[in-house]
Amino acid sequence: MTLAADHTELIAPEPSRLVILRQVLLDRPSTMAAVALIGVFVLIATFAPLLAPYDPLAQSYIKINRVPSAEHWLGTDQFGRDVLSRMIFGSRNSLIIGVLAPLLAAIIGTTLGVVAGFFGGVVDRIISRLVDLLISFPELLLAIIIAAALGGGFWNIVIVLAAAFVPNFARVARAQTMAVRAEPFVEAAVASGVTTWRIILRHIVPNIAAPIVVLMTLWTASAIRLEASLSFLGLGTQAPQPSWGNIIRDGLNNLFGSPWPVIGAGLAITSVVLAFNLLGDTIRDVLDPETSS
């Protein structure tokens, strides 16, 4: 056997991730529908000023609490504002907060979890106890406590929800990091002389990314739901800015006169949350074949 000999016959190549993803979508009509629905809501949020028939903030005291009509498809609220326009603009709030809060939580939580899982020892104990403390509160309760302290408003909601989600990301990231850390290729990197931070960035993070992405999709649904809950309670999006949560709250005053604002906003919340959950489940199945049902 000489050095020049070529030992490179290849084993059959595998289909790419994209091909697998397309096949999965074709196999699951419900996921296709979820993706389509999310797409529709994204379009609505993007083109809200073009689609909304009225200014969502414009009040009219001659058109208070109207039932649905050709003019106002979902009727008007107690200030005479067009409910459909408010819902269309409200979708922006829901979607942007739904993406931003889990993203922020993923960045902070993953950083904490990776540091705790990789270095262990005292650092791990401090971070883990902090996470245990936060996780012992239900998300909504924690969000209400922080929101009560910080007050409402767009960025405060993002911070509140991100803080409520951080422990979940930190836990998953920590457990995954400890598993990947024990892999021989990490020891091989240490033996090769790779620096600790480079090992974390090149070997740990790419290998724990899949469950973090799944978690982000699933928490997007929760973020939308929680933003609506906070706004419903008056701790989230502040009047007069529209949000699906405060549309329901305003609609409750006139529930028996016209239930349509409540029904419309409720349906919007339910369908978007359901769509993100379905998408999250599918992404989990694709990225982690072992847990697929």
Binding site: E183, P184, F185, E187, A188, A189, A191, S192, G193, V194, T195, R198, R202, H203, P206, N207
Partner: peptide, 30 residues
């Protein structure tokens, strides 16, 4: 740089997410 290791497990000791070039160049980059 002067002392290296060859591992027992040819599957676990190569990161599945890195290309052959990135794996071999690990000490070169380090």
């Amino acid at each position: 740089r002067r002392m290296q290791m060859v591992f027992q497990d040819p599957f676990g000791s190569l990161s599945p997410r890195r290309s052959v070039a990135d794996i071999i160049a690990e000490p070169i980059d380090a």
